[in-house]
Structures are given as C-alpha cells and as structure tokens.
Amino acid sequence: MVRFKNRWLLVEFITVSDDRPAVSAPSSFDAKHVHAALRQSVLSNFGDTGWGAVGGSMTVKYFSPTTHLCIIRVARDQHHLAWGAVTLLTSINAMRVIPHVVHVSGTIKHVQLAAIKHNRHVVARFRAIAKTPEQYHAQDSYVAYLAQSTREIEALQE
C-alpha cells in the first residue's frame, strides 16, 4: 500500500495599505479567496502545466480571518511549485498582501504546533500595537480567540 505524501505550508498573509501594514483591519477575504488567488498565481506564473501538477492536491485546510494565518496542503512532489506561487502572490480579493511562509512540514502535527505558536506571536504583536497594559491581557478578546483557534487547529485531520 502506497500512502499519499504531503507537505504542509503555514503562511501568514500580511495585509498592506497605502501608508502602513494594517495589522488589525477586518479581513476582506476568506479560505475560498485564498484558494482562488493561489490558483490564479499558479496559472499566471507556471501555466496550465503547473496547475495540472499542483491543482489536484492543493487545498486550504485552515484560514484565520483575524490573524490571516493559513495552512495549505499540497503533494510532496509539487510543494516547491505551490511555495513559489504563494510567494509570488501580491493580492487576494483586491487586497494587497505580503505572503510570509512561516513553516513547511511533512506532517500535520508539526504544522499545527507551529501555527499555535505563531498565533501567540501575532496576538502579542496585536497587543503591543494596541498598547494594552499587561494586567488586562487576561480580560481582552484575544484570550477567547487563542482558545478557539487552538481548538480549530488541533481538530484538523489529514
């Protein structure tokens, strides 16, 4: 029996406005928009042959509209093509983005651990920008978000 081998890409899409990166702006895109943008990036940069190679295996397994963190599954043999398409993205749903590939893994478990850790870093960045005092961290809305996103990420199945 031969098993299907995957690579998992953990990508953060940093939204960019005209004056500075928008950290806490509401998301105007979701997992479907990310998949459509990836498809368009593969088609425009690698053509129909590239999409034929990567299209059947590439799926967006998780997307957080709060932190713009995304987990993408792709076949192991074509992960370099998908990675290239991700880094060549400039916009998703008419919103300018800078893609940042945070982690690449061969197992879902390791990408889950990296996603949870990265979510904590992003929330810490949000708190620093909001200049929230340290004593109020237990009461802010990010505590509920971290708990919910951790449950969602841990529930992902291959």
Rank of each mutant, 00 (worst) to 15 (best):
V104Y: 08
T90V: 10
H118S: 03
Y136R: 15
P99V: 03
F126M: 10
A114W: 07
R151Q: 12
P99F: 01
N93D: 09
M95Q: 10
E154S: 15
S141D: 05
V122W: 01
V104P: 03
V101N: 05
I92Q: 01
K109I: 03
V102R: 11
H118P: 00
L88V: 02
M95C: 09
H100P: 00
I153T: 01
V102Q: 11
H110M: 12
T132D: 03
T90L: 13
A144W: 12
Q139L: 13
V104G: 06
T132F: 01
V122F: 02
H110R: 14
G106A: 09
P99C: 04
E154A: 13
K117S: 11
V111E: 00
D140Q: 13
Y145N: 00
R96D: 03
Q135A: 15
L156N: 09
L113R: 15
H110D: 10
V143K: 14
A94G: 05
E134G: 03
Y136V: 10
Y145V: 01
A147R: 13
V143A: 08
N93A: 13
H110K: 15
R127N: 08
K117V: 05
H103G: 06
I153W: 02
A115E: 03
Q148P: 01
I108M: 11
A128S: 12
I116T: 06
Q148E: 13
A144V: 12
V101M: 08
V104M: 11
A114C: 08
A144Y: 11
V97T: 06
T107M: 03
Y136A: 13
V143D: 04
T132C: 02
V97N: 01
T107H: 07
Y136E: 14
Y142C: 04
S91K: 06
L88I: 04
F126Y: 11
V143M: 06
A130S: 12
Q112Y: 15
F126H: 13
R96V: 06
V143S: 07
L146P: 00
H103A: 11
A144R: 14
Q148I: 10
K131T: 05
P99M: 05
N93F: 10
T150F: 08
Y145H: 07
E154I: 14
A144L: 13
R151I: 09
S141F: 04
A144M: 10
R120H: 04
V97R: 07
K117L: 07
Y136H: 12
S149C: 12
A124M: 12
V122R: 06
A130Q: 15
H137A: 12
H118V: 03
N119Y: 02
H103D: 10
A94H: 11
S91Y: 03
